[in-house]
Design a protein around this nucleic acid. Structure first.
Length: 478
RNA sequence: GUCCCCGUCGUCUAGGGGUCUAGGACACCGGGUUUUCAUCCCGGCAACAGGGGUUCGAAUCCCCUCGGGGAUGCCA
């Protein structure tokens, strides 16, 4: 069994493609299949080597490993379509000589006109087959005009195209309504996706094509080409699309869609993979958080759902937080570090004990790693200036007693007893519960939300604690 | 328009003729634990798109309607 993932390097790895890649990877692991990475870079204007690199980078970040690809070679290379033009040319020659394809001299403008309906609106159309039977003279005339022909595949009439999709079941098309003869080689000589995908999958001996549902309508064209060429037709599994909240294909207006942005925001790859896999699939037990190994055990290609799924950012966040919480502080520390740096702290000056400790304490408050930016100051700043919420609260009557009490206690605080600060504060202020803790939280951390105060105190240290008490004592003295 | 795919709580899903007064998770709303926000625990809200069949019995099988999506490119 051999599967493939075939991105086109025209931008960052999209979340929908990432899902396709993940499923292919799972399939390859589950069924011990080869995973071919093929770069579909025939859109010369939009393809870039930078995109190719960043896509591979994102795939690796997700933990996806392929067994053949442009970066590592393999027995079925080359793995960039732009390096396989000679191969395609052979097949085109064959199709042309057998009368299964023909040169078409219609220009883009002419085709555009044909596409316009009686009301002048641009609609879809079926190519008339105008250039199917040009004489040598007609061709020569076009050539002297300077026209460069495209190559069209001649669609055989009245042919049933049926295949058993692993997800959709039996799907049937009629060659009469797939849009007529379609272009397989552009006028500049570059072949087109629908054409070469068939050749590559056959030559690379791909046994199972697992791809997005948006390709389902292309499949009959591809099968027709395979038949004409006498090459192998793979098995298919068309994955339902991931869509936005309006059920349209996921795009930028729905939120962030490129994987690198998820990485930057601090999503864990395991969480993203878990979430992506859970769209359209679940186990009998209904487990949500599933380690990859367990996912592999339970996974079955044919058991994936058939309907498209809305990408739920909220649930992804919840899941990401669950993954963050699973990690101990010392493993989290290096993950949090880049974000702490971004918040303006020099990571090298922070003792590892403090770093590990704050990571452990703060993990419950972070849905994404970058959330640490809002909390790191609790442990790293000398003074935590109360934010608006905290400020408003500290102006409440009940807060005054706590601020006062804190100032009174300050002088008696020692390195030995300062971790009992909250108990002392309770006694001195005569307050408890919310009315004790919320002002205390505001004084100590400058905000109303955050880690457990008892556990935070030892990490904050006596020195910082005193500075914060003094700051609030002065600020709210009135 | 045409062809193709899809249709269970707001969302992701379980279910594949009787065990379904339809289960779980996210979100939301209550309550509890925590001398504190959060966490955590408990509870609640909430769905078989509609209509016809088939059957003793339909969320489940069939048909139609409606709804959504995809394709219809010298993009992939």
């Amino acid at each position: 069994m051999r599967v493939r993932f075939a991105p086109s390097p025209t931008g960052f790895l999209h979340i929908g493609n990432a899902r396709t890649a993940v499923i292919n990877y799972i399939v390859s692991k589950k069924y011990n299949a080869d995973l071919v990475l093929r770069v579909e870079d025939t859109d010369i204007e939009r393809s870039t080597i930078e995109s190719e690199r960043s896509i591979m980078d994102d795939l690796r970040w997700l933990g996806i490993e392929w067994t053949e690809g442009p970066d590592m070679g393999g027995n079925f290379g080359p793995y960039r379509q732009s390096e396989r033009f000679d191969i395609y040319a052979e097949y085109t020659k064959k199709l042309l000589s057998e009368g299964k394809a023909y040169h078409c001299y219609c220009t883009k403008e002419e085709l555009e006109d044909m596409r316009k309906d009686s009301e002048g609106k641009t609609t879809s159309f079926e190519y008339s087959g105008k250039c199917r039977h040009l004489t040598a003279e007609q061709k020569a005339a076009y050539e002297t005009e300077g026209r460069k022909p495209t190559v069209r595949f001649q669609v055989p009439p009245n042919e049933k195209i049926q295949f058993d999709d692993h997800l959709k079941g039996s799907v049937e098309f009629d060659s009469g309504n797939i849009g007529g003869d379609f272009i397989i080689v552009r006028s500049d000589g570059v072949p087109v996706y629908n054409y070469i995908v068939v050749i590559d999958d056959a030559l690379m001996e791909v046994s199972h094509v697992v791809r997005g549902e948006d390709h389902l309508s292309n499949t009959p064209k591809q099968i027709l080409i395979a038949r004409a060429l006498g090459i192998n037709v793979p098995e298919y599994a068309h994955l339902p699309l991931i869509v936005g909240s309006d059920r349209a294909k996921l795009s930028k207006r729905h939120g962030i869609t490129s994987v690198n942005l998820y990485r930057e925001e601090g999503y864990l790859p395991q969480a993203l993979v878990n979430y992506l896999t859970s769209l359209g699939w679940s186990t009998e037990a209904g487990s949500e958080i599933m380690p990859f190994d367990e996912m592999l055990k339970e996974f079955e290609l044919d058991k994936l759902g058939k309907s498209s799924a809305i990408f739920d950012f909220q649930k992804l966040k919840w899941m990401n937080n669950a993954y963050i919480k699973q990690l101990p502080g010392n493993e989290l520390a290096p993950l949090f570090s880049p974000y702490i740096e971004k918040a303006g702290y020099d990571i090298n000056t922070i003792e590892s004990e403090l770093l590990n400790g704050l990571s452990e304490l703060l993990k419950g408050n972070c849905e994404v790693l970058s959330d640490i930016k809002a909390f790191a100051g609790i442990f790293l700043d000398n003074v935590c200036k109360p934010d608006d919420e905290a400020d408003a609260m500290l102006n409440e009557d009940y807060a005054v007693a706590v601020i006062k009490a804190a100032s009174d206690i300050a002088a008696s605080l020692t390195p030995e007893n300062f971790t009992d600060f909250l108990e002392m504060l309770k006694e001195k202020s005569g307050q408890s519960g919310k009315k004790l803790f919320m002002p205390a939280r505001a004084i100590i951390t400058g905000r109303l939300k955050g880690p457990d105060l008892h556990r935070a105190l030892p990490l904050i240290g006596l020195d910082r604690l005193l500075q914060r008490i003094n700051f609030c004592g002065e600020k709210y003295a009135h």
